[in-house]
Amino acid sequence: PPRPPPKPGPGENPLQYNYGFWYSRKSQGNKSASYDQNLKLIGTFASVEQFWRHYCHIARPGDLTGHTDYHLFKEGIRPMWEDNANKNGGKWIIRLKKGLASRCWENLILAMLGEQFMVGEEICGAVISIRYSEDILSLWNRTASDGVTTSRIRDTLKRILNLPPNTIMEYKTHGDSLKDNSSF
């Protein structure tokens, strides 16, 4: 049976939403395992303090090796294109030079938890994908066709990540990802 949703403890600072930390790793051994089978829920939280209790016990993205992803999604949304909340959505994809993943991941999730994107319910979650030659940060939102929202998200991403102006940022709808069965 699913665990009851977490609640903020006494004296803790509640978040606007509950969130879940997920982890996925493409294992060398079992290449046939589906994306869904590789996706593991690490834990959920409802307050700032509960977030830090999880975050401080999880290896930093920059210290990971191999083909690994961290996902931080609102509770009730699975980090999958097919999830109800994602099926009409898309994501901003930011390609990072090696060495930037930990700082950018932390800045992005703190902005998401603090509701800094100012787009109401639109944000679904964030992903950091550790790969061999570069790392990829992405932020998922519900409505890919809403240009005002996706532009506002882009501008906030630029402000909070403070990356060089020539950083590659692109927007990809999950419909396109499903079509070519590729995330990036």
Binding site: Q16, V48, E49, R53, C56, E115
Partner: peptide
Amino acid sequence: GSRIFYERNFLMQCRSSPLAK
């Protein structure tokens, strides 16, 4: 209802709270 906003600095301060250990 009103939304719950937190600035980055406030979230970082909470990191050292005993409740976050």
